[in-house]
Amino acid sequence: MKTQEELTEIVRDHFSDMGEIATLYVQVYESSLESLVGGVIFEDGRHYTFVYENEDLVYE
């Protein structure tokens, strides 16, 4: 089982391919040991929310 830090790094690596990240945040109250819920804001102003669970990243 991966730690929350490892899950965060996986998500950061994925989004870094889309541009320069200004902020990546995790909603700790919605996340667990198996899933990571949060959002990412890019330097150009784009903002996505995401759920990473079971090695699957869903964002909008």
Rank of each mutant, 00 (worst) to 15 (best):
E20D: 11
E60N: 12
R12Q: 05
T3Q: 05
E53M: 14
I21W: 03
T49S: 12
G19N: 02
T23D: 09
M18P: 01
Y52G: 00
Q4A: 08
V26A: 04
V28G: 09
S16I: 10
M1L: 13
S31Y: 10
E9W: 09
G45W: 03
G45Y: 03
H14G: 05
Y52C: 04
H47K: 07
G19S: 03
G39K: 06
I10Y: 07
E5Q: 11
G19K: 02
D44H: 01
N54F: 10
S31T: 09
V37H: 10
G38V: 03
T49E: 06
H14M: 15
D17F: 15
G19P: 02
G38R: 00
S31D: 09
Y29T: 07
E30T: 12
Q4C: 08
Q4H: 06
F15K: 02
M1W: 10
M1H: 13
I41Q: 04
E30S: 13
V37D: 03
I21Y: 02
L24C: 04
L7P: 01
D17K: 15
H47R: 07
V28E: 11
L36D: 00
M1D: 07
G38I: 04
D56K: 15
E55Y: 11
V37K: 15
H47V: 07
S35W: 10
V40I: 09
E5F: 11
D44N: 06
Y29M: 07
L7W: 05
E20P: 10
V28D: 08
S16W: 07
E34L: 09
Y59A: 05
L24F: 09
T8Y: 10
Q4N: 05
Q4F: 11
V58L: 14
H14N: 06
G39D: 06
E30V: 13
I41Y: 09
V28F: 12
D17Q: 15
V40L: 04
T3A: 05
V11I: 09
F42R: 01
V51Q: 07
L24W: 04
V58Q: 11
D56V: 15
Y59F: 11
E43S: 15
Y48P: 00
V37P: 00
T49V: 08
T8F: 10
Y48W: 08
D13M: 12
V11W: 02
D56W: 15
E20K: 15
A22D: 08
E5N: 08
V28R: 13
S31P: 14
T23H: 13
Q4P: 06
L7Y: 04
E5G: 08
E43W: 10
R46T: 07
D56P: 02
V11C: 04
G38M: 02
Y29W: 12
V40D: 00
S35Q: 12
Y52S: 02
V40Q: 00
N54S: 09
V58E: 07
Y48H: 02
A22W: 07
V37C: 11
T3L: 05
E6K: 06
E6I: 07
T3C: 06
Y59C: 06
N54L: 08
T3V: 05
L57T: 04
V40H: 00
E6C: 07
I21H: 01
F42A: 00
D17V: 14
R46D: 05
S16A: 12
I10N: 05
Y52P: 00
F15L: 06
S31K: 11
R12D: 02
Q4M: 15
S16Q: 11
E55R: 08
V51K: 13
G19I: 02
E6T: 06
E30C: 11
E5Y: 10
H47D: 03
T8H: 06
M18F: 08
V58G: 06
V58I: 12
F50W: 08
I41D: 03
V11E: 01
V28A: 14
M1Q: 14
E9G: 10
R46Y: 04
V26H: 03
D13G: 15
Y59E: 03
Q4I: 14
H47Q: 06
E60M: 13
Q27H: 13
G39C: 14
S32Q: 11
T49A: 07
E30D: 14
L33N: 14
E60L: 10
F50K: 00
I21C: 03
Q27W: 08
I41K: 06
S32A: 12
D13C: 12
V26W: 06
E43T: 15
N54E: 06
E53A: 15
D13W: 12
R46V: 05
V11Q: 00
G38H: 02
L33A: 13
L7M: 07
V40S: 00
V11K: 02
Y25Q: 04
Q27L: 15
Y59K: 04
G45N: 04
Y25A: 03
V51P: 00
T3H: 05
L33E: 10
T49F: 10
A22S: 12
D44Y: 02
S16P: 02
E43G: 09
F15W: 03
V58F: 14
Q27S: 13
E60K: 15
F15G: 00
E20Q: 14
E9P: 02
V40C: 05
G39L: 11
L36Y: 04
M18E: 04
S31Q: 12
L57W: 05
D44C: 03
E5W: 11
E43L: 15
A22Q: 12
R12F: 08
E34A: 12
K2A: 07
K2N: 05
E9C: 09
D13F: 13
V51T: 11
Y29D: 06
I10E: 07
M18N: 03
F42P: 00
T23N: 11
Y29H: 07
Y25S: 04
V26M: 04
G19Q: 02
N54I: 05
F50R: 00
D17H: 15
V40M: 02
Q27P: 03
E9M: 12
L36W: 05
E53P: 01
L24Y: 04
M1E: 09
L36E: 00
T49K: 14
V26D: 01
A22E: 09
S32I: 11
S35C: 10
E34R: 08
E30N: 14
E34P: 14
F42H: 00
I41F: 08
D13R: 14
E55D: 13
M1C: 09
T3E: 04
H14Q: 09
V58M: 10
A22P: 01
D56Q: 12
E6H: 08
S31V: 10
Q27V: 15
T8M: 12
I41L: 08
Q4L: 14
S32C: 09
G38N: 00
R46W: 04
L33G: 11
Y25F: 05
V40F: 02
I10S: 05
